[in-house]
Design a protein around this nucleic acid. Structure first.
Lengths: 182, 182
DNA sequence: CGCAATTCGTTGATTACTGAACAAATCAAT
DNA sequence: ATTGATTTGTTCAGTAATCAACGAATTGCG
């Protein structure tokens, strides 16, 4: 990865953080480019240097997080579900504001489906569905079933103010997955 | 005040915060320009764009805080010592890391004297020392006496991890000043 | 509806910052 | 003292961000 100019990195971080903050305060539709520029302490034109409009900006934010989660799966491919889940939940905690506004608010339903797609995709790659316990069951059904379970659990966690620690969430949902898929 | 380019403002804030952070971790003498640049996430040359060397940088940081405190005195000139002190202590809290490293560590003894100078100067401007209670006492002695008292109290507060709230500190030291000077 | 006020997306000229390089100065440690 | 390594302060060409301005498109309100 050719290292990016630190001015670019800083501007983009500021802009993305601004969007996340603003989305936790009001609907995405009500956020103007000027709002984002003000919050990020960046000239309005700077935003257009990197993104075509606010939808493109939100898309890139989503894709970036999805990609990060995918890479976490790579490095966690040798772990149990309990261990691997913990890596995910740690990432959720680090990016608390983003995920909670994306999942717990009505703002961006697109993200949820994008997130579910990723989970199912990774399950398909990591798990040999056809074996053992699950003979006789349709693979597509299994994937959809447990994918929805994972996403729903994360959703519940954020919507309820993260009442359990990341560690506990990872252990419990991990145990359920290990029991059924491994 | 002609508004400064936001790039300048951001760079300088990052640089100053970096110095404050680093001073809380190691002696000022051990801090290199490169350290500051790394911590501030700024090119080394950018620092030289604004400051001649790290001593100039520290000086400007000190002067800026002294100047801010002086301006707070302006706006607090109609208040009692209790009220006015609270404005100061709020400022101390907001700039916790700077003041605690400047006062509670051995790093910058210069700041203490600069701080004391300011307090005495403001006392001289705000208080009619010669009146009432203090007839027969030398003005210079009174100023030095209560100036040292104020600075020493703040020093104690930071060195002991701010065991009392800003509100309480302001009320108590304010009461002592009101009783003696007003 | 019609009008005013925002917001948008883009432009051009200017400025600040970047990264890389350099010689000189300072430091460490034998 | 003589090395070798680090840090310093400066230079330069290139790039990103700035601010101000613009007409066009949207929005909101009377």
């Amino acid at each position: 990865m050719a290292k990016v100019d630190r001015r670019i990195a800083k501007s983009q971080v500021a802009i993305k953080n601004a969007v996340t903050e603003l989305m936790s305060e009001k609907s995405f539709d009500d956020i103007t480019i000027q709002d984002i520029a003000d919050r990020a302490d960046v000239n309005r034109g700077t935003i257009y240097l990197h993104y075509t409009d606010k939808y493109d900006l939100l898309d890139k934010m989503i894709e970036e997080h999805i990609e990060n989660l995918r890479e976490l799966c790579q490095s966690a491919s040798e772990m149990t579900f309990q261990e691997g889940n913990y890596v995910w939940y740690e990432y959720f905690e680090r990016n608390y504001l983003f995920f909670s506004t994306m999942l717990a608010s009505k703002g961006a339903p697109y993200f949820r489906s994008r997130f579910l797609d990723l989970v199912i995709q990774e399950f398909k790659a990591e798990v040999d569905i056809t074996v053992e316990k699950n003979n006789g069951l349709n693979e597509v059904v299994i994937l959809q079933f447990f994918g929805s379970a994972v996403v729903g659990s994360v959703e519940w966690w954020f919507k309820n103010g993260m009442p359990l620690s990341a560690r506990v969430m990872a252990e419990q949902t991990g145990a359920l997955l290990d029991r059924n898929l491994e």
